[in-house]
Simulated scan of single mutants.
Amino acid sequence: MTDIRNAEKGSIVGSLTVAPITRHTLALYCGASGDLNPIHVDIDFAKASGMTDVFAHGMLSMAYLGRLLTDLAPQTTLRSFTTRFTSITQLGAEITCTAKLAERFSEDGEDRARLELTAVDQNNDVKLLGEAVVALPN
């Protein structure tokens, strides 16, 4: 990973690739998050809803982006974190999250960096787009 303070605008400052999403992953996430929507774990319910199978929670991919962020900067330096869900994440998806330096700026007496965030699967299908602002150390 590249040091955000010394990175060029537009450069990738961090990435994270996670293991393929399995039914087990979804069951664990249901329990951890409290999101018990059956469309994520019950194939019969998913099919009755017009889907071919269960699919991942959108917030699971957002959690992967959050993990990337806290790998890049301490949680206490996070000033904002937003995402937009762009497509469904199927079983077997191998999600890769990246953070690109959009800009460095000063606000409220802090040096900060705005990061463009992306989560894509192994087919380069974009699952989430987002942005985060982190305070930079002195």
Rank of each mutant, 00 (worst) to 15 (best):
V54S: 12
M62T: 06
G58M: 02
T98I: 04
Q75P: 10
K47R: 13
N37Y: 12
L69D: 10
A93G: 07
R67I: 07
Q90V: 10
G58H: 03
Q90L: 11
D44T: 02
P38H: 01
E94P: 08
N37V: 12
H40I: 04
L91N: 12
F105G: 13
S61I: 02
E110D: 14
S61A: 05
G92D: 04
D111W: 15
M51C: 06
S87W: 10
T52A: 00
V41M: 02
T82F: 10
I95V: 11
R104E: 10
R112V: 00
G66C: 07
L91G: 01
G58N: 00
A102D: 14
T89Y: 07
L68P: 06
V41Y: 09
L91P: 10
R84H: 06
T52I: 02
T83Q: 06
A48L: 11
M62V: 05
A102Y: 14
T96A: 02
L68A: 00
A113M: 01
H57Q: 13
V41C: 00
A48W: 13
V41S: 02
F105R: 11
G50W: 14
L68H: 14
L68F: 14
D53Y: 12
T98D: 04
R84N: 09
G109D: 04
H40C: 03
I88L: 07
N37K: 11
L65V: 03
A46N: 03
F81L: 00
S87D: 09
T70E: 13
S106A: 14
F55N: 05
I39K: 00
R104G: 01
F105D: 11
Q90F: 05
S49H: 08
A63R: 12
M62D: 03
K100Q: 12
F85D: 01
F85Y: 13
Q90H: 14
